[in-house]
Amino acid sequence: MSNFFQVKTVFENIPEIIKYLPITLELAVVSFLISLLVGLILALIKIKRIPVLLQATNVFISVIRGTPVLVQLYVAYFGIPMFLKYINLQYGTNWNVNGVPAILYAIVALSLNQAAYNAETLRAALQSVEKGQIEAATTLGMTPLQTLIRIVIPEAFTVALPSLSNSFIAMIKSTSLAFVCAVVDMTAAGKIIGGRTYRYFEVYVSLAIIYWIITIVIEQAEKLIERKIRVPEDVPVPKKQKEERIEEHVTGNKIRANRKEAGDPGSESVKEIQAERSFG
């Protein structure tokens, strides 16, 4: 029975798997950044309804959303080398097909996959910005690019953030499929450990714990960012005024204390009021 499930092994695996955390994070972060950029471009194409590009974008989004990410990884892994070989043959170039690092295939597949989803999220967020603000920026003389960067994107980002952090969490977990492109990420490392010790179940539990903790960290980070970038609920108080207010409070207390020492008849009532307040 003691060999049925070894809790100790679960925790012993973790440090070994964690060594591959940088690969997982690199894969996720790089792919996500690319997907944001590509997604933004696709979203702008859809909003501006640029002919030809619009149709191409729609087809792209439909194909990507209509196929499993695992299949896309395979297509990237086998397709890109074939494409390079074809170009070499056709144009007499000398691309080294074997020199392409495996992680690149995974990044291409994952980022394009995520871009299709992000395009829709970003489009909705960009369109949620009131047209009036864009007009106001135009009348000030701002160029469309300045308006986009300084007015539209900051506001749209607040709207898009919850969906984007969702996507990023999904991205972290999609990286666990990268082993099909011969990338050794945390999941692949876990499989290797499992193959060595035949303790597959424990390894998978270790992996589950690690992924869960990463997700918790991302969730907390999202909350923090959301709080940072939103328009504050209350009127912001400048630092100087805040200090003055605190000082006022302190001096107020001092005056009360002084009165009490001097046996001021008012001190009794002050005391009462203070007592009342503390109950309230």
């Binding site: 009036g132 603000q133 106001a136 920026a137 135009t138 009348t139 000030l140 003389g141 328009v231 912001p236």
Partner: peptide, 18 residues
């Protein structure tokens, strides 16, 4: 645009700016 400023019916202030 630089020569003509405009004030709108619905103000159109930038929402995320003070």
């Amino acid at each position: 645009h630089r020569s003509c400023g405009m004030v709108f019916q619905n103000w159109n202030l930038f929402y995320k700016k003070t």
